[in-house]
């Protein structure tokens, strides 16, 4: 099977002064894959993710994201990725429709195109009822769904999700993952961080960062077999225990 690579890094490193936040990480992510990016607090996940999104210049190493060099083409890169953080990137006093329209506009979509796209997204989400309410009045679960839809409104090749399901009830959390599956099914690569270890099981492959380096990278099944444990939670605990860098 010849899978297309959407993210490829080689020895990607970021230092802040004497502190090496990300230490020469190399990995590949394939098209349409759900890639779980795990690690303890302070292991370097956020720094790595920011570099891949073109928000932070690496100290050394290389990375191609969606076919663009993160050093030389950060702007083209940004046009082809979506990003959703744990804190909502939606404007609370705009409606769902206005938020979507705004973000689509930012990505340079044409007016006609925006109207159609927003309309179809709202329909597919089944949120017609909520689409003209200001976002801050919506339940958390809906906000998260709308946030996700907004992040992929411009048909990005990759979407980065930074702890998208924190604090959400188990049903909504699963509905959210259904959306992730659908997006992956349509060929969007999903790059996701989470603290829920059952969600790590939903990923096609999982990488585990310890002390700024990638300590393990494989399918959840293979990782569980390798460390002979029953769940990803145990895998995480085994690996994170090896951390030397005190969590500071």
């Amino acid at each position: 099977m010849n899978k297309l690579i959407t993210i490829e890094t080689r020895d990607l490193t970021k230092r802040f002064g004497n502190f090496t936040a990300v230490d020469a990480i190399s990995f590949k992510v394939y098209e349409g894959e759900i890639f779980g990016f795990l690690g303890a607090n302070g292991a370097g996940k956020t720094t790595a993710m920011r570099m891949l999104c073109g928000l932070l210049t690496p100290t050394s190493g290389q990375a191609l994201v969606a076919g663009y060099d993160i050093y030389r083409q950060p702007n083209q890169l940004k046009a082809h990725i979506g990003y959703m953080s744990q804190k909502f990137s939606l404007y609370p006093n705009l409606t769902a429709r206005e938020n979507m329209t705004f973000y689509a506009g930012i990505y340079g979509m044409k007016r006609k195109e925006i109207g159609d796209k927003v309309h179809s997204l709202i329909k597919s989400l089944g949120v017609e009822k909520y689409s003209d309410m200001q976002v801050h009045n919506l339940p958390l679960g809906w906000k998260q769904k709308i946030s996700f839809m907004t992040a992929i409104i411009h048909n990005p090749k990759i979407v980065f999700l930074d702890e998208p399901t924190g604090g959400v009830d188990p049903i909504t959390r699963r509905q959210f993952w259904d959306m992730i599956y659908e997006a992956a099914d349509r060929g969007i690569t999903v790059f996701v961080t989470t603290h829920y270890m059952d969600e790590a099981e939903y990923c096609d492959r999982v990488s585990m960062m310890v002390d700024g380096a990638i300590a393990a990278l494989d399918t959840p099944e293979a990782l569980k077999t390798r460390y002979s444990v029953a769940s990803m939670n145990d895998v995480f605990i085994q690996l994170a225990r090896k951390a030397n860098r005190s969590a500071v």
């Binding site: 607090n41 292991a43 605990i237 225990r241």
Partner: peptide, 13 residues
């Protein structure tokens, strides 16, 4: 009140 929210599994344990 939610002392472990947003904290990794090891720290939570």
């Amino acid at each position: 009140d939610e002392p472990t929210t947003g904290v990794d599994p090891v720290s939570r344990k």
